[in-house]
């Protein structure tokens, strides 16, 4: 590994609009997540959590600040230093509030497509997708379409997909919001176990205060500013 940290966000700032309509959605936001570390990002609605997540996910570049993955500079302000699409494909995994599976693909195919996009052969992709689904207890539902799965099962498939390319970082935006507390906790624990097992850095944006004990670090965000909460 090139660096101690899977991902580093340094002094991120995001300004929407200009002049009188200028709004700072994120200011001086910094976060360092080590390999195998699982961190929570808490905060009320509109505090800038999603802005932060899309910035470190290389989807919505910040106005200023720097983002490094595996120690390599990805974004210097809004300026991409590498092919962001390729980095997203290789190093990042995404899990969302709604499971966000592709409805016309089965559970296995939803995982498989992430691998094929990254250059794996269809045979290898299929094999690895089944392994991942088995690992997450979804092997017997591999051929089911998302509409045939419960919310928790869909999230497991989404996590399998996020893990498919052995990402350096998984970014999850309120992955338990649509689940009951029991299932929500199960999913959080799953993230923790996977982070520790695969050495993947995990950033989870959540409102759920009941499962905070699974996290290695907790950040709080308010008015675009991130602060580390002391555990």
């Amino acid at each position: 590994m090139a660096d101690k940290f899977a991902i580093q966000a340094e002094d991120l700032k995001k300004i929407y609009g200009s002049g009188n309509t200028e709004v700072a959605a994120m200011q001086h936001a910094s976060m360092h997540v080590a390999y195998g570390e699982i961190v929570a990002l808490l905060g009320p609605s509109g505090s800038g959590k999603s802005t932060f997540l899309t910035a470190v996910g290389l989807i919505n570049p910040p106005t200023s600040g720097r983002i490094k993955i595996r120690g390599q500079l990805m974004l210097n302000g809004p300026q991409p230093m590498v092919d962001l699409k390729s980095i997203r494909r290789k190093y990042l995994g995404f899990v969302f509030q709604r499971s966000n599976l592709i409805p016309f693909l089965s559970a296995r195919e939803n995982v498989q497509i992430a691998l094929e996009i990254n250059g794996y052969s269809p045979q290898d992709s299929r094999k690895r997708a089944l392994e991942l689904l088995n690992e997450l207890g979804m092997g017997d539902r591999a051929d089911n379409f998302p509409s045939m799965l419960s919310g928790g099962q869909q999230q497991r498939v989404a996590i399998s997909r996020a893990l498919a390319n052995q990402p350096v970082v998984i970014l999850a935006d309120e992955p338990t919001a649509a689940l009951d507390s029991h299932l929500g906790r199960q999913v959080m624990e799953l993230f923790r176990d996977l982070a520790h097992k695969h050495g993947t850095g995990v950033i989870i944006v959540t409102h759920d205060q009941r499962a905070l004990d699974v996290f290695d670090a907790i950040y709080e965000m308010e008015d675009g500013i991130i602060e580390l909460r002391q555990l």
């Binding site: 996910g57 989807i59 699409k85 390729s86 997203r88 494909r89 290789k90 995404f94 966000n100 592709i102 409805p103 016309f104 497509i113 992430a114 996009i117 990254n118 997909r161």
Partner: peptide, 17 residues
């Protein structure tokens, strides 16, 4: 399919796909 297309792009699919 716009949502699925957005999702594909998010996980790194090229425009060609």
């Amino acid at each position: 399919k716009l949502h699925s297309i957005a999702l594909l792009k998010l996980i790194g699919a090229s425009n060609w796909i």
